[in-house]
Write a protein that binds this DNA or RNA. Structure first.
Length: 194
DNA sequence: TTTCCGATGTACT
DNA sequence: GTACATCGGAAAA
């Protein structure tokens, strides 16, 4: 298959290329509408800032490797590693527009009050897709569409859609770097851009 | 409606 | 001991 992004591109460029792509897992799928880019040693907000550890090992994997980690002791966050060999950049998937398996998403997220709440946040979308630490390190590109595990497939922006950017959310370092990207006007993003 | 804060585990100082 | 790429319930307005 054709890779949904250029493996050796700069992380902030890859992040924008991932907008519009479809992330699926089993019978559930969503269109990526919001992401954040995280760099390597040059980005103090990145998990890779201090070099490889047991937790961030997947960030150093080949492009298309899924990096899943636990945040605040209870929520999983999914990233796509995208750096060339030796460079651990990754893109955090922040929000999806649900496109398939809505019933299953609802059953996994009974607290959701509306469809827009199903995948409008990094922890929410992992719950809806049932992405956990078990999936850390798997390739999103190797498995064919329709396979059971997490898979990424190419997508594109629709007519009239534009990419907008702003500062990343929930960090205390590098707060001014505008590395949060979203599809303009999309109602499924986690929060408005600042 | 907006704001505040507790839950809960892992990594790092 | 403290911070953390979050979420959702309770309190305030």
């Amino acid at each position: 298959m054709v890779a949904p992004f250029s493996p050796t591109g700069r992380v902030e460029v890859v992040a924008q290329q991932l907008l519009g792509c479809v992330l699926s897992s089993g019978a559930v799928a969503g269109r990526i509408v919001e992401v954040e880019a995280y760099g390597a040693e040059d980005d103090a907000a990145s998990h890779a800032f201090r070099g490889p550890t047991a937790r961030n090992a997947s960030m150093f994997g080949s492009p298309g490797t899924l990096y899943v980690y636990l945040i605040y002791g209870m929520h999983w966050c999914a990233n796509v590693a995208c750096g060339p060999p030796g460079e651990a950049s990754a893109v955090l998937i922040r929000a999806l527009e649900p496109v398939q398996g809505l019933d299953l998403m609802w059953s996994r997220r009974p607290k959701a009050r509306a469809e827009v709440d199903l995948c409008s946040g990094p922890g929410k979308l992992c719950a809806s897709l049932d992405i956990t630490g078990d999936h850390d390190g798997v390739s999103l590109l190797r498995s064919p569409p329709g396979s059971f595990g997490p898979t990424l497939r190419r997508g594109s922006l629709h007519g009239g859609e534009e990419i907008v950017c702003g500062p990343r959310i929930g960090i205390t370092k590098e707060v001014d770097r505008p590395w949060r990207f979203a599809i303009s006007g999309n109602r499924y993003m986690s929060r408005p851009l600042m």
